[in-house]
């Protein structure tokens, strides 16, 4: 889905998910590793504050990925 949105719309797609090898396999270009499968953009086990802080950090990283000039599949670890 990520790849086809990007191909058809010609706009960057940042995918946040936990299993990086799958994102690489399906052809995602801008990859942001998530926290866990049931909560990719949050850390609810650590309490509401930490949860939101984590989410904000990952979303900012995804926005950074959308602005990155890349030539191949790239994993944004920070």
């Amino acid at each position: 889905m990520t790849r086809e949105i990007e191909r058809v719309a010609q706009i960057p797609v940042a995918q946040i998910a936990t299993i990086v090898p799958i994102m690489l396999t399906v052809g995602a270009n801008r990859i942001v590793p998530g926290v866990a499968i049931p909560h990719p953009v949050g850390n609810p086990e650590a309490g509401p504050e930490e949860d939101k802080k984590t989410r904000r950090k990952l979303v900012l990283r995804a926005l950074k990925a959308l602005q990155a000039d890349i030539s191949e599949q790239t994993i944004f670890e920070s």
């Binding site: 889905m1 990520t2 949105i5 990007e6 058809v8 719309a9 010609q10 706009i11 960057p12 797609v13 940042a14 995918q15 946040i16 998910a17 936990t18 994102m23 998530g34 499968i37 049931p38 990719p40 953009v41 979303v59 995804a62 926005l63 959308l66």
Partner: peptide, 15 residues
């Protein structure tokens, strides 16, 4: 649809 709507980028989350 996103192209038509003038969207510039997507954040896609997967579980």
């Amino acid at each position: 649809e996103l192209k038509e709507a003038g969207v510039d980028g997507v954040i896609l989350t997967s579980t």
